[in-house]
Design a protein around this nucleic acid. Structure first.
Lengths: 354, 354
DNA sequence: CACTTTTTGATTTACGTACATCAAAAAAGC
DNA sequence: GCTTTTTTGATGTACGTAAATCAAAAAGTG
């Protein structure tokens, strides 16, 4: 049986009250007595029953997730993961709420952050937009002692406590490496389809990709970036035009959203042999992989990101620093053969770790 | 604030004792009264505080993990993950112990299972060995009402409740697909290095790999399997001999352990351009990826498997069925560019989800 | 020594749930 | 109407910890 506070009190030859004072860093304990208690804790291998402690404290951790609204399938999957996590975290006295804001709207995001801070939350997770007013809002939250993590898209210039997302330069490098190996010594330039170069993660991915392409030896030519604003309709038009213009095109790297349009354009054009790599395993990219139009999909596991964000926010709210190395988000590579079965619960098209 | 039993008692207009009888399915409640209480539960959205419930029950869940001993780095990483999980699960009254048995020893494994059952555990997780006496031991555990999951290596013919591991046929197919794409139209046969074809997961991987190789159109030739018994020394000798014998060799698929030997043989031979795909991200395969000797590593996340096993065993011990879709283990693909930083804590060379 | 201050002990209440006991009320049977 | 059975209420204890109170003991001060 696990030792309790009573056991360490008996073992240390002190009262329960003294043990409590030591455990909760309350004043009024001599150094020698404190040492006796700590020795007993060590000796018996006592670990606090956090469930009982939280029960006694009556403490709850209200967290807010601020997520862009709109039809971006990755964001919808992210939100689904948050809602799934809500049930799972009730047991350790964490209550999560979701706030939706218009995508890419710095003003709305800043307002949502301020509202959450005013609402006395313990922590905030938000998909950051790169703008000064957002930085200011995050810094205000920090000043109020509210834990803050950026989700998916970082804002390193702010005072956020942590970033829950992938290393996007490495993701771009991974895409480049796969593209180079898949193409082998096949000739021809490659195209890049992005949402917008003014979004941090997209530009980072491009720089990683371009770097590897340049290193690749053969010096493969990367065409000018097609900016589709993450919109399927625009993406489709851009890709269709590019395919017509460059009959010798060897590959396409889609580093943003709007992949439904990419897949549609490729289906219409019917160009086998073209190497296509996209980001985020969502219904369109999954369909592309299954049909063979898409060769590989780089993915960040939204479920991991959400759970990591919750752990970090809780740790921060308790005044502890999270184990940084443990909270790193992997870059997943999917090809047709290791495609997980779709998860009906979240719609993220992914087997979750739960 | 979350509703408590008191709230639903008041809302339903009954006493606390009656609510308790309904919640814990105790007898002596009229159908109408039960309906009233259930309506109140629904209305207020009551969810039982499992932490408080377990505290009151004083229930603990003793689980046993049976893991092969020896120097197999993947198994050592697996054990490290289990030991890491021990701390993490204390909060929900789960106590985990680890039992080591000699690898591939069906008799020892069966004995360990029987010992665990005799020790009144709530659940057992074991790396299965494919043998009738192991099946019998698992079935005895099942008969005694002890939850059982197979870990990494399955034994589908037994009455185990669940398998926590990857789809090894799909893993072999993934390896085959990557090999085919990396090789492009480069000529030459490919070699396969395995531990033993009498181990289920190895034979499954081979069948998946061979199937894709045959489908690949060009009909690439797969040489006879090299069985290295997961031993680095034997593996090194086999690979060295194969390299000498087949100067035109295009690729090597290592689907078992002993990869330290594989990497050493390749380093000694110095054969750039050879496509090498291995399994499990361990120190040797990580080193191979970093030096460029290994092109890709297929990986199963031991941390996921352990955490999944714990969830499934706990659910089973509570008489609930786990959400199967949520407990699926992914096949991770690592190349040099998406290699996570090593985790000093587990030695699994992986960023954990935690 | 008396005195103050600090440290420690003893005790109580609380958190939300489980479980047991016994009395009171309601329903059913005759 | 009565008894018998079933259902319900009231109450208490327990789990392991937090937090508060007040008294008792020990330490330090003059």
């Amino acid at each position: 049986m696990r030792p309790t506070v009573h056991d360490i009190a008996a073992s240390a030859g002190v009262s329960l009250a003294t043990v409590d004072r030591v455990l909760n860093a309350r004043p009024g304990v001599r150094a020698v007595t404190r040492a006796k208690v700590e020795a007993a804790i060590e000796r018996l291998g006592y670990v606090r029953d956090v469930a009982a402690a939280n029960l006694a404290k009556g403490r709850i951790y209200p967290l807010v997730f601020i997520i862009p609204e709109g039809e971006n399938p990755f964001m919808r999957g992210l939100e689904a993961e948050v809602r799934q996590a809500m049930d799972r975290v009730t047991f350790d006295r964490t209550s999560i709420s979701v706030v939706n804001v218009p995508p890419f709207d710095a003003h709305a995001l800043a307002a949502a952050i301020d509202a959450a801070v005013a609402g006395e939350v313990a922590g905030i997770a938000a998909v950051a937009v790169d703008a000064p007013e957002v930085v200011d809002a995050i810094d205000r939250a920090h000043a109020e002692g509210v834990a803050f993590v950026t989700l998916v898209s970082d804002l390193a210039s702010s005072r956020r406590d942590h970033f829950c997302g992938v290393d996007n330069v490495a993701a771009g490098r991974t895409a480049g490496s796969l593209m180079a190996r898949f193409l082998g010594d096949r000739e021809g330039p490659v195209a890049v389809l992005a949402g917008s170069m003014r979004v941090r993660d997209h530009s980072e991915r491009l720089s990683g990709f371009s770097a590897v392409m340049a290193e690749a030896g053969c010096g493969r030519h990367v065409l000018d970036v097609l900016e589709g604003q993450d919109d399927p309709v625009r993406a489709r038009a851009l890709v269709a035009r590019c395919l017509a213009e460059f009959p010798g095109l060897a590959g396409i790297y889609s580093l943003g959203a709007g992949n439904a349009g990419l897949v549609a354009a490729l289906e219409a054009a019917g160009r086998p042999g073209l190497c296509v790599i996209a980001h985020e395993l969502t219904p369109p990219t999954r369909a592309g992989l299954e049909s063979g139009i898409v060769d590989a999909v780089l993915h960040q596991d939204a479920g991991h990101e959400v759970r990591s964000a919750i752990r970090v926010l809780r740790a921060k709210a308790d005044g502890m620093k999270p184990v940084a190395a443990q909270e790193r988000i992997r870059i997943d590579i999917f090809i047709k053969e290791n495609l997980p079965p779709p998860d009906p619960e979240t719609g993220t098209a992914l087997a979750g770790e739960g």
